[in-house]
């Protein structure tokens, strides 16, 4: 096939647009390992800034990871049963509750944080602990977990699967953990990755809720850009990338696997 000028002009435009997005990422990453950004790459490459970030902000980074994990545990414990009830016993009350649950996603994080501060700001032990930030993160991420799990549950005819299991003698807990949860796994995994990613990256809620002793990774990043050398802020971004990219890739891979599995059904042949 002969490619005419239209093809090449479109290709050119695509490349330019991609570069427009990719170049700042590369520049930022490079800035994090350059000796002196203002002199450019000629000043040489170094890992010094990365180590310096680690020295300064290791606690924020670890705290973020800790909060993300705690957030995951809470959203799993609350979200999976909640999704089950929403799908299994739908009613007007339940729908209303689901809308209510989704509200924190629609409200600006700052407003949500303000509400938390007004209500619980006076409880000093709670206000100053990381649990306060965890509360905000759970409010914000729970709907994502519930939606993700509920979508998979709604597609699998739980009522019939449960009736099948019950006819074989399985009680509720056995059915829930042996049949419902394993079959909801794609939704649970997708929800889990979403929750962890959102929690690690959450800024505007957390910025309002944090104290100097409970700084999370993104709050630390803002702090680094505001008060440190540009190289340190950039090196910080680099660390952030390294943490978040595998999660995003895993999320994509999971979505692909879900699609492949559903396609396989059509290929089964009726031989018996």
């Amino acid at each position: 096939m002969r490619r005419d000028w239209k093809f090449y002009s479109q290709l050119g435009l695509t490349i330019v647009l991609c570069l427009f997005i990719v170049v700042p990422v590369v520049m930022s990453a490079l800035a994090g390992v350059t000796v002196n950004v203002f002199k450019g790459l000629s000043s040489g490459l170094t890992l010094r800034w990365v180590f310096e970030v680690w020295d300064l902000y290791a606690q924020s980074i670890l705290l973020s990871l800790g909060i993300a994990m705690a957030c995951l545990v809470v959203t799993l414990l609350a979200g999976v049963p909640l999704a089950y009830v929403l799908v299994r016993r739908p009613s007007r009350m339940m729908r209303l509750f689901e809308e209510l649950l989704t509200l924190p996603v629609a409200i600006p994080g700052l407003a949500l944080a303000l509400a938390l501060l007004i209500t619980y700001g006076g409880v000093s032990g709670y206000r100053s602990s990381w649990l306060f930030i965890l509360t905000g993160h759970v409010l914000f991420t729970l709907p994502f977990m519930v939606r993700s799990v509920a979508a998979v549950m709604a597609a699998m005819d739980m009522k019939m699967l449960e009736e099948g299991a019950a006819s074989l003698g399985a009680g509720f807990w056995r059915r829930f953990f042996g049949v419902i949860v394993p079959n909801a796994k794609p939704g649970i995994l997708a929800g889990a990755l979403m929750v962890v990613t959102l929690s690690i990256g959450e800024f505007n809620l957390t910025w309002m809720l944090h104290t100097p002793l409970t700084k999370t990774l993104p709050v630390g990043l803002a702090d680094a850009y505001a008060s440190m050398r540009l190289e340190i802020g950039s090196a910080y971004t680099l660390i952030f990338f390294v943490l978040i990219m595998p999660l995003l890739i895993a999320m994509q891979a999971l979505a692909d696997r879900g699609k492949r599995a559903s396609r396989r059904i059509d290929t089964a042949e009726d031989t018996l």
């Binding site: 009736e163 019950a166 006819s167 003698g169 079959n183």
Partner: peptide, 20 residues
């Protein structure tokens, strides 16, 4: 008695097999 206790075997129109 609930279905778990009755020892009945059930076969459904849409199979109700466990995909996992």
């Amino acid at each position: 008695q609930s279905i778990e206790k009755r020892r009945v075997g059930m076969v459904f129109q849409s199979y109700a097999l466990f995909p996992n």
